[in-house]
Simulated scan of single mutants.
Amino acid sequence: MLKEYNLSNREQSENVPIGIFCENEAGKKFAGLTGETFENWLCIHYYAKEFV
């Protein structure tokens, strides 16, 4: 219910998808997140970190 409330009370703007990933020297991804931005907000949908 919190997400529904927040979406109904935010300013109207375009949502921009985002994906950020960290790689080690060998090019293997070990952490990252996906989400979207709108106005001055960042909404994280998924975050993952692999312990190497």
Rank of each mutant, 00 (worst) to 15 (best):
T37G: 01
A48L: 08
Y5E: 13
I20W: 10
L42I: 13
G27K: 07
G27H: 09
L42E: 04
W41Y: 12
Y47D: 01
T34C: 08
F21S: 03
P17C: 06
G19I: 07
T34W: 01
P17M: 07
F51N: 11
N9Y: 05
A26R: 15
A26D: 15
Q12E: 08
W41G: 01
E39K: 10
E50F: 15
E14C: 02
Q12R: 13
E23H: 14
K3M: 12
I44G: 11
F51P: 01
F38W: 13
E36L: 05
W41H: 12
I44R: 01
F30A: 01
E23S: 09
Q12D: 09
P17H: 02
G35D: 01
I44Y: 04
T34Q: 01
N40V: 01
N40R: 07
N6F: 11
R10A: 02
A48V: 10
C22K: 04
F30D: 01
E25S: 13
E50W: 14
Y47F: 08
T37Y: 03
N6R: 10
E4N: 04
N24Y: 12
V16H: 05
E23V: 13
L7R: 04
I20F: 08
G32M: 05
L33N: 05
Y47G: 01
Y47Q: 08
V16F: 10
K29S: 07
E39I: 08
I18G: 02
F30Y: 15
C43T: 09
L7Y: 05
K29A: 12
N15C: 00
E4V: 07
A48N: 10
V16N: 05
P17R: 04
E50S: 13
W41V: 06
N6T: 08
F51T: 10
G27Y: 13
E14D: 12
R10E: 14
V52C: 02
T37P: 02
G32N: 03
E50L: 15
K29T: 12
K29C: 06
P17Q: 07
K3T: 14
Q12M: 11
K28H: 09
N6E: 13
K28A: 07
L42R: 12
L7V: 01
V16K: 12
I44N: 00
T34D: 05
I44E: 04
I44A: 08
A31W: 00
R10M: 08
F21V: 07
